[in-house]
Amino acid sequence: MIKIKQISFQGFKQRFQVKKPWDDVIIFVLNILIAIPVFIIAHQNLVEFNWALNLDRILLFLLIIVIIQLILRLLRTIIIICIILYVLVLFYGTVFGNYGFESVFEDYNSMMYTMSDNPNPQDIIIAKLLPFPNKSKIVSAIEYKNPKVRNFAIMATSKNFKNVKGYSDYRTIIQCFAVFKEINRRWNYVSDPKDGDYIATASESLDYFSGDCDDHSILMAAAVRAIGGTPRLIHTKGHIYPEILIGTLNDLETVNYLIKNVLFVKESHQKQLHYHIDERGQVWLNLDYTAKYPGGPFLSEEILGALTLN
């Protein structure tokens, strides 16, 4: 009985064992295929040391390759089964909306693009917490439930970036960028009357796409919130501008790639993203009327107050 089992195991082993030198070739290819998603996950969850030339990430990738290579060599006799399992896992993730082939490709693209062209963080400490000017009037003017505002935002998403595929997790952000593009393309700066601030409602600004910085911020915040985005208004000395919540620094990698390689290629060419990181580690991207692309340069950097619209 034991002899029969040994014969069966030897037959099973010989059936799935790849002959030399093809076993080394297959192991190397499989190593790279496994190492890429493993490295992406490690890159997203381990602290970056920000070494020159991203040396910490290069060493991490080499370490992962060495470890996987050793494991695959131990499993040399069932290498074909390893390949089948690897493909089945990614196929399952692709079919059921988890981590699949498309996710690996997207994460690799965004990670490599960000590592070669780092965004420009603006971790500005709030020096003075002052009351937000005209807060109650501004909140009332952000009419994100107004049908006119909602319809405009929907129109903008149909007009801009409608055909961008493969980034379903960032659909809302892409649509908010479509709103940004439509508003900033049409915005005409007009000063308030000399005798005081004039706070225009979002629906009012839609008539002529004109007004000062607070009018622009109100319209942008209302339209972004009307389609599911999370905006906030930043008060600086003599200026107010809108920002949008991107998410984590990992999300910023993908957004950086989208802005510079898909959505605003010409506008952001050889330029950096400008953003703030709040006390929770969340990333907020600049949407000012002076910016030609989301994350354009700040007009004024000293923050005096912030008004977040949840």
Score class of each variant (00 low, 15 high):
240 I>V: 05
234 I>F: 00
230 T>Q: 11
254 T>R: 07
256 N>K: 02
234 I>E: 00
233 L>G: 05
243 E>C: 05
250 N>S: 10
256 N>V: 09
237 K>R: 12
239 H>L: 08
253 E>K: 13
237 K>Q: 13
258 L>K: 04
233 L>K: 09
242 P>H: 15
241 Y>S: 11
242 P>I: 15
230 T>C: 11
230 T>W: 13
231 P>K: 14
263 L>P: 08
251 D>R: 05
262 V>G: 11
259 I>P: 13
254 T>V: 13
232 R>C: 09
254 T>P: 04
258 L>F: 06
231 P>D: 11
240 I>C: 01
241 Y>W: 13
230 T>I: 13
253 E>F: 09
252 L>S: 02
250 N>H: 07
260 K>P: 10
234 I>A: 00
246 I>K: 00
239 H>E: 09
252 L>D: 07
231 P>C: 13
240 I>Y: 00
255 V>K: 06
242 P>S: 15
244 I>Q: 02
243 E>Y: 05
245 L>Y: 12
247 G>L: 05
262 V>A: 10
245 L>R: 10
234 I>M: 00
241 Y>N: 12
246 I>S: 02
246 I>V: 11
230 T>K: 08
258 L>M: 04
257 Y>T: 08
246 I>Q: 02
239 H>C: 08
261 N>I: 15
249 L>F: 13
241 Y>P: 02
232 R>T: 07
248 T>W: 01
243 E>N: 03
236 T>S: 09
233 L>E: 02
233 L>T: 06
262 V>R: 11
257 Y>Q: 07
263 L>S: 05
236 T>L: 07
260 K>D: 07
243 E>P: 01
236 T>V: 07
248 T>S: 01
230 T>G: 12
